[in-house]
């Protein structure tokens, strides 16, 4: 059986301004397409369009997973660092992980967040602070 190969880019979206616009998946798609056209021309834009999708986008953790077909994914990967604007917001994209399946990406994210949480807990001096951190963490939306 021939498999239809995909690549999933797990990226961290770092906002550089204090805008309050919600990150929309459609906006991410549009800006990714635009930046690829800038770097690789019309061919690049047309090549990655096949199967391009934002599978997961989390506002509170600032993480997005972009799916792309295997093959032209290299064009997408090489143009992601040049992305500076999503919708009206100024952002920077930091790619964290490139996986072949979504499950792998989720595993990575889970590990990544656990490490971050441990870091945050280490910084706390008193029990009260720890409780506060946990409280804030539990409020964030981890839903898909």
């Amino acid at each position: 059986m021939v498999r239809f190969k995909n690549r999933y880019f797990t990226t961290e979206i770092i906002p550089l301004d204090n805008g309050h616009d919600v990150l929309k998946t459609y906006d991410i798609l549009k800006s990714v397409l635009a930046v690829t056209e800038q770097i690789h021309g019309e061919f690049g834009a047309a090549a990655i369009r096949n199967g391009l999708e934002v599978k997961y986008c989390n506002e509170s953790t600032q993480v997005a997973i972009i799916r792309c077909r295997h093959g032209p994914h290299r064009l997408l990967a090489s143009s992601l660092p040049f992305l500076s604007r999503i919708g009206k917001r100024k952002v920077q994209l930091q790619s964290m992980y490139t996986g072949a399946t979504l499950v792998k990406c989720y595993h990575f994210l889970k590990k990544f967040h656990q490490e971050k949480m441990n870091e945050a807990l280490k910084m706390c001096r008193t029990e009260q602070e720890k409780k506060k951190v946990l409280e804030i963490m539990s409020k964030t939306k981890y839903g898909l």
Binding site: V2, F4, E42, A46, A47, R49, N50, G51, G71, P72
Partner: peptide
């Protein structure tokens, strides 16, 4: 035209990826 170019490349890539 630019848009037509993109559409044709897109379609032919679909033939490539789905039907080899």
């Amino acid at each position: 035209d630019s848009t037509m170019r993109k559409k044709i490349i897109h379609m032919s890539h679909q033939y490539h990826s789905i039907g080899k």
